[in-house]
């Protein structure tokens, strides 16, 4: 039985979560039919380098409408391919667009969908809940298992099979498939280091006490060339914009070090900094839960500790 992987790409360059999904799907194929190449589906143009990752056939959906993103049009292409190929499993990245397209596919076919899986075998999946703070083992009752793969849950592995065959087709899009599409774009002014990509994030929570309390946080972040983050208690108080919020419903960060001061360590906050290589927590309360997920801790008042760190950095740099 075939395994179909939906590939998200930017001008032919597959996204990292898509390649992770492909690696995940190959493991699936091995369980079902050992060593069989997987099928990939892409819209617009054939993504590069898929043969390196075990793809035997690329199903390429071509249509004038693919000039701008329309989730239901992509989903319709997936549905047509499912009907033609009758795969036993359809996999996509658990990215924003991957989850969206697969939910459209699931709704069109009235089939179950398991989002953000970290492992799967047959119709049994393990998926994340609460942004990764909890796992759920579930059974998908369906002849064709639809699932998305949690980004960064599996590492990309190569499995060269040569140049894949490309099968082009034009999906039969309904007017409703094009009713929702990107019609315009607003560019944002680029300002400083983006939180998601920052190598160092210095953040504070309710313990900062006020919007002004972030002065010392900004100072330390600037000294380190990092970005400023915060907890939801801070955004809800209006001290910082939501774009600074780290967490399940904020930004997911993956810095070399995350310096979190005056933050208790709620699971929803920690869901956003799981990708950090090291976490340093600064908190007055030695029993704060964050000390159970941090690598390093300083017990003390952030209003004293943070300026002292800044002063020490200046001293060391000046020396």
């Amino acid at each position: 039985m075939a395994v179909l992987v939906v590939i998200e790409h930017v001008d032919g360059e597959p996204t990292e979560p898509s390649l992770q999904a492909l690696t995940f799907a190959r493991g699936y194929a091995v369980d079902g039919a050992p060593g069989e190449p997987v099928h990939a589906l892409a819209v617009g143009l054939a993504p590069r380098g898929l043969g390196e990752l075990g793809v035997g056939t690329v199903h390429l959906a071509e249509h004038d409408a693919f000039g701008s993103y329309a989730p239901a049009a992509v989903a319709r292409s997936v549905v047509e391919t499912i009907q033609r190929l009758a795969p036993s499993v359809v996999v996509a990245a658990g990215s924003e667009l991957g989850n969206e397209v697969m939910a459209h596919v699931a709704a069109m076919l009235d089939l179950p969908l398991a989002a953000n899986c970290i492992s799967a075998s047959g119709d049994e999946v393990t998926r994340i809940r609460w942004g990764g703070s909890l796992l759920e083992e579930a059974t998908v009752h369906s002849d064709v298992v639809l699932l998305t793969v949690q980004p960064h849950a599996v590492a990309i592995e190569k499995a060269p099979v040569g140049e894949p065959a490309v099968e082009r087709f034009t999906p039969d899009l309904l007017p409703a498939d094009l009713a929702v599409r990107v019609t315009d774009r607003v560019e944002a002014a680029a300002d400083g280091v983006s939180l998601a990509d920052a190598k160092i994030v210095v953040s504070a929570g309710r313990g900062a006490g006020s919007a002004e309390g972030f002065g010392i946080i900004e100072e330390l972040a600037a000294l380190l060339g990092g970005a400023v983050g915060c907890s939801r208690a801070v955004t809800m108080s209006g001290w910082r914009p939501h774009t600074d919020q780290v967490g399940q419903t904020g930004t997911k960060i993956a810095p070399e070090i995350y310096i979190a001061s005056g933050i208790s360590g709620a699971t929803q906050h920690m869901a956003g900094c799981k990708g950090a290589k090291k976490i340093l927590a600064i908190n007055t309360d030695p029993d704060a839960p964050i000390f159970a997920s941090a690598d390093y801790g300083v017990i003390g008042d952030l209003r004293e500790v943070v300026p002292a760190i800044s002063a020490e950095i200046r001293r060391v740099k000046g020396a």
Partner: peptide, 10 residues
């Protein structure tokens, strides 16, 4: 059709 078997704390 997405039937939970059990929850696990990672």
């Amino acid at each position: 059709r997405l039937a939970r078997r059990r929850l696990v704390v990672p």
